[in-house]
Nucleic acid binder design. Structure first.
Lengths: 163, 163
DNA sequence: TAACAGAGTTAGACATAGCTAACAATACAG
DNA sequence: CTGTATTGTTAGCTATGTCTAACTCTGTTA
């Protein structure tokens, strides 16, 4: 759903976001290190992203996300985090495995599935301690979209990962 | 985990398996139709798979999986089916969305995650009707690997999708 | 048995995404 | 302000995976 970016473009965009959130300025070298590719690869990718209006990048200068680029990057970031949490906390795989799988899955899932997974994670968080919860309740939570608490309708949740 | 095949090779291998299971003989045209690509693409892919010892394909003849190819193809097929079922029956997305996402996810997940998802699907199948099941129980099923029934240890299940 | 339709292949192009090697710009030391 | 280290870019190559157009095989049928 993200767009016609291809997995690679999405990775670069997300890298720019993550690096800039860490407080550093975003340079070609930083992106290369973050993604484990060479600087020429970054240069090429940035040109392409710039053409698409997703980043600004003056020659030999810093990299910045445009408004559209930031939206996309944030979506990828949310996807990534959600999938990582889902795999670790719901499916129960080790953290590094979850991280690796999340990296690859983030480019591949539909918004509909993502949205459901958000609810699934919320449900498991909210009811981890409950001693008796039926799968029916999980099912209807996934349908209704209110997964933060089961019996009453409290529209309390947040953090959409889709669209 | 499948190997150094790339998503594309895995798709071709799986297509050969699916077509042959449907009772037809497997020709270039059939594979092309099945995957929505052109015949030259199939030709090229088959050469590459033949070089890797995964299919046999005499010029102008039929396509057959080698033993190794069949193993890989069957793994992809199981992955595909599992993910489809997981998305549809556990996550609850519509069938066609599940199908599309499964196609893309099958190339991307680690064996560890796959194995866990197998258990998750088994658990949900086995306990769909139970009125009180705690998430703890789900959690320990995922850990222990016995997800077909919760209280007693009945090692009744089958169908691994990993390794 | 000759011709034709369907199936398969080859050749050549394109897009993506990565690499190395060589070069250019910048920034900082002294 | 000059030189060196860091950073960034360019050029050129590779591999994968797809396409179209043109050609070749094969099998059927009249």
């Amino acid at each position: 759903m993200p767009g016609q970016l291809g997995q690679s473009g999405e990775d670069y965009l997300e890298a720019v976001l993550v690096i800039s959130r860490s407080g550093q300025r975003v340079r070609v070298t930083d992106i290369a290190a973050h993604l484990g590719v060479t600087k020429p690869s970054v240069s090429a990718a940035l040109s392409s992203l710039e053409q698409k209006g997703l980043v600004r990048h003056e020659r030999y200068g810093e990299v910045q996300l445009t408004a559209r680029g930031a939206l996309l990057a944030e979506e990828m970031f949310r996807r990534h985090r959600l999938l990582h949490e889902f795999l670790r906390d719901v499916v129960g795989v080790p953290d590094e495995v979850a991280a690796g799988d999340a990296c690859r899955m983030e480019h591949v899932l539909s918004c509909q599935t993502l949205q459901r997974l958000v609810r699934l994670v919320e449900f498991v968080r909210a009811h981890d301690d409950d001693e008796s919860i039926s799968l029916r309740q999980l099912g209807s939570c996934l349908e209704s979209g209110d997964c933060s608490r089961v019996p009453a309708q409290r529209g309390g949740s947040s953090d959409e990962a889709a669209e």
